Amino acid sequence: MHGPASSGWLLVALCAATGAYCLLRMRSRVEEQRSAAGGEALMGFGMAVMAVPATAFTPPAWAWPAQAVVFGAAGLHALWAARAGARHLHHLIGAGAMVYMAVAMAVSPGHTHAHGGSGVPLLTGALLLYFVAYVLVAGVRLVPVTAVAGGGPAPGWGDRPELARACRLSMAIGMVAMLLTM
């Protein structure tokens, strides 16, 4: 999403750092952490690529359809995983938003993000409402998790639920920023 260059680079850094942390979470001893971390890493890195300012790099014409296909596949995986629990629906919505933005970037002239000045498209507005609500709820839930009393080993970086929540929160904030530029 190609707004001002400085905010674009900050968004790239945030999303790339989030994606890198999610890769670390894939080494977790907790199965739930590992299963969610791969999709979240893909989302973080995909958002970072999409946020690179147009003044720095103009991707080839095939890049946006390729991203739409990758995130479409991630959405199908999230849809399949949603059979096991509703927590996967957020991943489905995120993947759908990435497909929507990739398609919008592919069809826009010059790969800019104007939509003709006709106001905010309905889908963009709905996605914005969802992600703003998610940011608010996730921010409230980010209250520190109390440690369980016991003599077990200290959790590793990949096993810290508060860091995983912060990771999801930062990606949702990034998604809001990207949708605002649509």
Rank of each mutant, 00 (worst) to 15 (best):
A5C: 05
S7L: 13
S7K: 13
W9Y: 10
L11S: 08
A16C: 05
A16D: 07
A16W: 06
T18E: 08
T18R: 12
G19A: 08
Y21D: 03
L23H: 03
L23I: 12
M26F: 04
R27S: 11
V30Y: 05
E31M: 09
E32N: 11
E32F: 07
A37M: 03
A37F: 01
G38D: 06
G39H: 10
L42S: 06
M43R: 12
G44C: 02
F45H: 06
G46W: 00
A51Y: 00
V52M: 07
A54L: 14
T58N: 11
A63E: 02
W64P: 00
W64N: 03
P65D: 09
Q67N: 10
V70H: 05
F71M: 11
G72H: 05
G75S: 07
G75N: 10
H77Q: 12
W80I: 14
W80T: 11
A81W: 04
A82W: 08
A82F: 02
G85Y: 12
G85A: 13
G85E: 14
H88N: 15
L89G: 00
H90W: 08
H91F: 01
H91A: 14
L92R: 03
L92A: 09
L92T: 01
A95M: 10
M98A: 08
V99E: 06
Y100I: 07
A102C: 02
A102M: 02
V107A: 13
S108E: 01
G110D: 10
T112A: 12
G117L: 11
G117M: 07
V120T: 15
L122Y: 05
L123D: 04
G125V: 07
Y130S: 04
F131W: 10
A133T: 12
A133D: 02
G139H: 10
V143I: 09
T146K: 15
V148L: 13
A149L: 15
G150A: 06
G151A: 13
G151C: 08
G152H: 12
A154D: 09
G156R: 15
W157L: 15
D159I: 01
R160E: 15
A164H: 14
R165G: 09
L169H: 07
M171P: 00
I173D: 02
I173N: 03
V176R: 13
V176G: 07
L179M: 04
L180S: 14
L180N: 09
